[in-house]
Design a protein around this nucleic acid. Structure first.
Lengths: 154, 154
DNA sequence: CTGCCTGCAAACGATTTGCACCAGC
DNA sequence: GCTGGTGCAAATCGTTTGCAGGCAG
């Protein structure tokens, strides 16, 4: 892993922007590199903090706008769950998540066995399923070790 | 279904409140009945609209606070996903969701086959899984029929 | 050149908070 | 009666929008 993957993803950004007629600005490139570089699920503000060193004049608005554009382009995914702000992740292939119910941390889970589940029969809803994603809820190691046992009903 | 189930759920509310020392106020009872009565996934404001007829003086703040309390008590679940406000559902047993990527509609999916998936081995993350929930993304019948085909990258 | 993109500041909408009053137990 | 709940209004916070100037193609 490392720069090879990063370069590859940046090439993808260039290709997608060009083919869709989206100008490839400095800001878009920097935001993209920032999110691809990390392996967690940063919020818009975390991305902003991360790139401020490189592009001090970038505005928070621009980061929000760019992330939104990337989601529309299918380059990144937006994740949202209760008690936390929107977060983004660079992965677009199928994978799943472990979500800590205490600290809201999200951990990626890559397990092929989980990718082969047959779509349920939803003909009665006339709904067309495209893909799926499993949310495993639980408690992460950090929160478990400092758990006091005064929350979380069964 | 019907009033029997409703009464049963209200009994559950009474029991839980009593056992945890939470006063059972009129407002809590009305909000709870409102959410149990419907079979969709209302937002806080939709609940407010629904109960304003019965309790005209109830404040929006109270509805938010009560819904939050119910979530903590494990009586309801909070659902959140990109591009929409927080929504709540009265079901607490395991089930899954069909989520329309266009209109953000959420449809419940009850299929036992999906409830027996073995938890993945997450020992390397030292994460303790409690339960899981599958998100099937796709397009609902309404949005599909009026689809124009200018969105949604592959 | 020309149009989309960016930065700024202000608007926005959902949710939260401080405080005085009121209701369950 | 005491404790926590409620209603109101104002604050907060993430996010979006309007507009003037700037840069990629």
């Amino acid at each position: 892993m490392g720069s090879t993957s990063l370069e590859h993803r940046v090439k993808e950004l260039e290709k997608v922007c060009r083919s869709r007629g989206f100008p490839l600005t400095i800001q878009r490139r920097v935001v993209f590199e920032a999110i691809v570089e990390r392996d967690d699920h940063p919020s818009a503000d975390q991305i902003l903090e991360q790139i401020k060193e490189r592009v001090p004049d970038i505005s928070r608005t621009t980061v929000y706008r760019i992330l939104d554009t990337f989601v529309q382009l299918g380059l990144i995914t937006k994740i949202c769950h209760p008690r936390s702000v929107a977060r983004f992740e660079p992965k677009t292939h199928q994978h799943h998540h472990l979500v800590c119910m205490h600290c809201e941390q999200i951990i990626d889970l890559e397990e092929n066995r989980l990718n082969g589940i047959a779509f349920p029969d939803v003909s009665c809803h006339d709904f067309q399923i495209t893909d799926y994603h499993i949310h495993f809820r639980g408690i992460c190691s950090g929160c478990r070790s400092k758990a006091v046992g005064s929350e979380l009903p069964p």
